[in-house]
Design a binder for these strands. Structure first.
Length: 406
DNA sequence: ATTGCTGAATGG
């Protein structure tokens, strides 16, 4: 490994990833015969009304068996093969934490005990907010699709082209955040020398909320502009529809928003630690320290690494992101389907963000999709229990009924 | 808090 700038952070956990995983296949099959909100037959009308009055909503019982030894192994990167096992594990972990600590009152953020949101959380909110909320409440219902696994491995393959991978065991939450910092510290010089990096960790406070993410790729364009590239692999050889593109655009917009903050010296160690409830004096784990030493960094507590990172970001004179590109590739043969530059309109992005965050702050109720986007429900794991959908269906049914009575 | 706080992104 000649270039220390080529390491990224990741995490490994629990060996028996598949144990206790509920089989969702049947549920997914069932969802196939769900129709749009419209097109309701006469016989269904009465049924719908009955159901509506009863308020029937049978939630399937979800069990989360899990080994309780709790030993966690974190690493500075994935030893390949990450795909499914890690995903399933992570999901169950989040599931347990959220459901255990679920409170009946407070803002959604408090209800799900979230100290931060991820960029993906906000993007799935753009796709369907109601679905995103169900994912928080009942994550076990989602099964990773083949397209998603394929996407993950393509991304991993690309990452391996530019990164060496080193695993590191961690003991504390501070250790995992220290790894993010170490990776940032390693990537800064690569960017300064005009190089290319993948999986750049980002985090910043947006509108009072902490948002965390990972930038797929950063590099320089032929014009010498700092360019963000987000690879989207597609199961079919087609470009995404407008609805899906909207969510992709939001993703890169948020990346830029956060990255720009980071390089303009907006990051304050104390604010970060307060927000994320990290202990500044926490001594770093031996493996983390070891890695820091090989990178010639003299650090012993979490505060040391975080402060060093904030200072580096502030004074390394990295540019803000000039260009945002969405790159679509076909999973089948790897062919490029299209690459488009999206224009960052700050006002619009902030407006969208404010709307999304207002849900988390408890300023408004959850919203599902509009009728014209009801096609999304056909591939949604939660359509059979969806309150929003039921309500929409009901209101349309009643409207149809009224028309007929006229 | 009884023991208590998350790899993010993957695609539609």
């Amino acid at each position: 490994m000649s270039d220390p700038g080529n390491c990224t952070a990741s995490l490994l956990k629990e060996e028996d990833a598949t144990a206790g995983r509920p089989d969702n296949r049947q549920l997914c099959e069932e969802n196939k015969d769900n129709e749009d909100f419209s097109d309701i037959s006469d016989s269904e009308l009465q049924q719908l009304q009955d159901t509506a009055e009863k308020g029937d909503r049978s939630l399937p019982e979800i069990k989360n068996k899990r080994t309780e030894d709790g030993t966690s192994l974190e690493s500075i990167d994935v030893n390949a093969e990450s795909g499914e096992d890690l995903y399933q594990d992570g999901t169950r972990e989040r599931d347990i934490l959220r459901r255990k600590r679920k409170q009946e009152v407070g803002t959604p953020l408090e209800k799900y005990s979230l100290r931060y949101l991820t960029v993906t959380d906000i993007c799935s909110q753009v796709w369907c907010e109601q679905q995103m909320v169900y994912k928080m409440e009942l994550p076990a219902l989602v099964e990773k699709s083949a397209a998603m696994s394929e996407g993950s491995s393509i991304h991993l393959a690309r990452e391996l082209e530019v990164h060496d991978i080193v695993s590191v065991t961690t003991k504390t939450r501070e250790d995992s955040w220290a790894i993010k910092c170490l990776n940032i510290l390693a990537m800064i010089p690569v960017l300064q020398s005009g190089g290319r990096v993948r999986e750049f960790p980002i985090f910043a406070e947006l509108d009072g909320l902490y948002v965390v993410g990972v930038i797929d790729e950063l590099g320089y364009s032929s014009k010498g502009e700092l360019e963000l590239r987000e690879l989207k692999t597609r199961a079919s050889p087609t470009l995404p529809g407008s609805s899906q593109k909207r969510s992709h655009e939001m993703q890169v917009f948020l990346y830029k928003l956060i990255f720009d903050r980071m390089v303009s010296g907006d990051l304050q160690p104390d604010v970060i630690m307060q927000h994320l409830k990290l202990r500044p004096e926490q001594e770093l784990g031996s493996q983390v320290k070891e890695h820091a030493i090989t990178s010639d960094l003299n650090v012993s507590t979490f505060r040391d690494v975080l402060e060093l990172t904030c200072l580096n970001l502030t004074y390394s004179d990295l540019p803000m992101i000039d260009s945002l590109k969405l790159e679509y590739c076909f999973q089948g043969d790897g062919s490029l389907l299209g690459c488009e530059e999206v224009t960052f309109q700050k006002e619009k992005v902030l407006e969208q963000l404010t709307f999304n965050l207002s849900y988390w702050k408890g300023l408004r109720e959850v919203q599902g999709v509009d009728i014209e986007d009801a096609w999304k429900c056909r591939m949604c794991e939660y359509s059979s229990i969806c309150e929003w959908r039921a309500q929409k269906t009901r209101s349309i049914a009643l409207r149809t009924l009224n028309k007929r009575l006229k």
